[in-house]
Structures are given as C-alpha cells and as structure tokens.
Amino acid sequence: MSSKMVIRQPEPVMDARESDEWGSGICDCCQDVPECCLAFWCLPCFACKTTKKYGQCLCLPLLDMFGFIPPVTMSMRVSMRQRYGIKDTMCRDCVFATFCASCSWCQMSREMRRRDLQVVLVSAKNT
C-alpha cells in the first residue's frame, strides 16, 4: 500500500497599509532632505533611481527631455496611483509633472517607501 504525502507551501503574510490618499503632500520635501536635494540638483539621476526601484526600466525617465509635458513622470504618477489606489486626477498629475517635476518624483519615492510591503513567510520549515 502506498501513502501519499502532501506538502503545502506557507502563504505569504502581508501587512496592508491601505489609504486612498498620498502619504505626503507634493511639497513635503522636508521629510527627507537628502533625497530632496538629490532630486533638485540631479533630477535625471534621481528619477532613474526611483523608476528602477518601482520595477521599470532604469533609463525610462530620460525620455522626458523630448516633450513639453513629461510623459514618463506623468505615467509613473498615474501608475503609482493605480497600484496603490490613490484618488487624484490626471489633470493634477499633468500639472505636477510639468511644473514641479522634482517635487513629484520625491513624492513618488516617499510613497514607495511608505507602502513597501515586506513578504514574511510564516511556519516555513526546512525539510
């Protein structure tokens, strides 16, 4: 008689931080002064670094140099709002991306850091 062994993998446990608002305002750069300074003095480097952490192509923000409304900055804001369920408008995204790009990138970086969910395995056994 044969016996059947069933092995079940533990499910990931996530601490959800749900909110439909941005975690910080567009001008809350004082929350992280070094990050704000990097964004102000070297926006392309900061935007590329933030885009990479978000899981997109590292050099994607460099395409913003070719248009009046920075398409990548605006797209990242819209994508982040959709991913995290933040209520805002595309009109505001367009205004922030066009006239306050460094503040916009800082806000997105703070939001990613605030909503960073670590996956913790519970009851995992090494067999």
Rank of each mutant, 00 (worst) to 15 (best):
A47W: 03
C30Y: 10
D116G: 10
Y84K: 09
Q118I: 13
L117K: 13
W22P: 13
K87C: 11
L58S: 10
M1F: 07
Q107L: 05
V122H: 14
A97M: 05
C103A: 02
K52N: 08
L121D: 14
S2W: 12
V6D: 09
F66D: 00
R113N: 10
M5Y: 04
V6G: 06
Q118N: 15
A47G: 00
P34G: 04
P61C: 07
Q9T: 14
T51M: 14
P34F: 03
R92W: 13
P44Q: 05
K87V: 15
R8D: 11
S75Y: 00
K49M: 14
C29Q: 05
N126K: 06
L62V: 04
L43V: 03
C37N: 07
P10W: 12
C94V: 07
Q82Y: 03
K49R: 15
E11S: 14
S79A: 11
L121M: 15
C48S: 13
R113Q: 12
E21I: 12
S2Y: 12
R8Y: 07
Q118T: 14
G23T: 04
C57I: 10
R114E: 07
C100G: 12
M14I: 05
G85W: 14
T50E: 07
S3W: 07
P71H: 02
E18C: 08
C100F: 14
K87F: 09
C103T: 01
V6I: 08
D28E: 06
E18Q: 08
D64Y: 03
T127I: 06
M14H: 04
C103D: 10
S19V: 03
S123F: 01
L62K: 09
D64N: 03
P70M: 09
A101K: 06
K53S: 11
K52L: 11
I26R: 14
C30H: 12
V120Y: 08
C106F: 01
F68V: 01
M80L: 04
Y54N: 11
T127C: 05
K87W: 11
I7F: 08
S24I: 07
V72R: 04
K125Y: 06
S2T: 07
K53Y: 10
E11L: 13
V72A: 08
P70N: 02
C36R: 01
V33C: 01
K125E: 01
C45S: 09
V78L: 13
T51I: 04
C48P: 13
F96D: 08
E111Y: 00
C42R: 09
S123Y: 08
R83L: 05
S75K: 04
A39R: 02
M108K: 00
K125G: 00
C57Y: 10
M14W: 11
M1K: 04
P71S: 04
